[in-house]
Computed example of a mutant assay.
Amino acid sequence: MKIGLFFGSFNPIHIGHLVIANHMAEYSDLDQVWFVVTPHSPFKTKSSLLDNYQRLEMVYRATQDYTKIKPCDIEFNLTQPNYTINTLVHLQEKYPQYKFALIMGEDNLKSFHKWKNYALILENHGIYVYPRVSEHPDSYRDETQFDKHKKIHHVNAPIMELSSTFIRNAIKEGKNVQPMLPQHVWEYLDEMNFYK
Rank of each mutant, 00 (worst) to 15 (best):
G4S: 09
F6Q: 03
N11T: 13
I13H: 07
I15H: 05
I20C: 07
A21G: 10
H23A: 10
H23E: 07
E26K: 08
E26F: 05
Y27H: 15
Y27C: 11
S28E: 01
L30W: 06
L30R: 07
W34F: 12
P39Q: 02
H40R: 12
L50H: 02
Q54D: 11
R55K: 02
L56W: 04
L56A: 10
M58R: 00
V59H: 00
R61G: 04
T67N: 06
K68L: 07
I69F: 01
C72M: 07
F76I: 12
T79V: 12
N82R: 01
Y83W: 02
I85R: 00
I85F: 09
L91G: 11
Q92A: 15
E93H: 13
Q97L: 09
Q97F: 11
Y98F: 14
L102W: 10
L102N: 08
I103T: 10
E106Y: 05
N108G: 03
S111M: 05
A119L: 02
A119I: 06
E123D: 10
N124L: 08
V133H: 10
S134P: 03
H136Q: 13
P137H: 08
Y140G: 10
R141Y: 15
T144W: 07
Q145W: 05
F146R: 00
D147F: 15
K148I: 12
K148G: 06
H149E: 05
I152F: 02
V155N: 01
N156C: 02
A157D: 00
M160E: 07
I167P: 05
N169L: 14
N169P: 08
K172H: 15
G174H: 13
G174P: 05
P179D: 09
H184K: 15
W186C: 10
M192G: 06
